[in-house]
Amino acid sequence: TPVVLGLEERNPACDDPETEAAALAGVDYLNQHVRWGYKHVLNQIDKVRVWPRRPSGEVYELEFDTLETTCHALDITPLANCSVRTVTQHAVEGDCDMHVLKQDGQFSVVFAKCESTPDSREDVRKVCPQCPLLTPVNNTKVVHAANAALAAFNAQNNGSHFELLEISRAQLVPLPVSTYVEFAVVATDCAAADGTDPACSGPPKKQYGFCKATVAEKLGGEEVSVTCTVFPTQPVAPLPQPDAASSANPPPAADPAVSPPSSPSVPVDSVALGPKRV
């Protein structure tokens, strides 16, 4: 095949403004499509190659690292206002492979695969020997703490009745003996006072919230402290498909209410969207 001039790959620098713009478009895509866990920010671009695309445009093949923020995926807070989770809070890193098409000056993601892993226990211990470490979210104490906190919130809440959507992260605190848990909730059509009504098991409204709770073990009982933020109701639109998406590779469900349940262990999550190749 004769070489076609002008169609060779490019290798721009990882900190090249165009590379950064492509990576940031990838991070935006990630945060718009992940419906559980936390929003992530760009931390470091590891590799980049740029391929020409027929009939026009270029595809940025990117590898980059992200860091978990304290904003839940359903939180409407702009990413710029989300704090990066610190090492002492047991940070979580994301590792992403993405293909980002640039055409007519616009970026669009055509392939995305990200996996996240928590920092090692040893690394956290080096910086903070006493800091509580992440605990699997299916831990009995964690599940109990989330349910107790949600019950306490519903008991005090005059508005909608909320149900547990996912447990997002948790830590067992040694002193005072307590369980710290963060979890997402979804409102049902029932008022809080009707929580025991069987009719309340119907399909939930699309109103989500995010709670942080501490359940401390006390002599003869426990003390529950919970704070929940309810996000404004958001219209639920179908997820946009990557350009070359096929029915053989369906994206995750658009409805968080039917998204996979909480991860069975420490939140090590991954999402693969769109076709394998451009």
């Binding site: 990882c14 590891d46 090492v87």
Partner: peptide, 28 residues
């Protein structure tokens, strides 16, 4: 005619390696 050999331009700013890029927060 004697000419001086070319002198290297000296130590200038070293460009950063093309990849990986800078760490924006911290590496774990």
């Amino acid at each position: 005619k004697v000419t001086h050999p070319g002198v290297a331009s000296g130590v200038g700013p070293v460009p950063p390696p093309p990849c990986p890029g800078r760490i924006r927060h911290f590496k774990i």
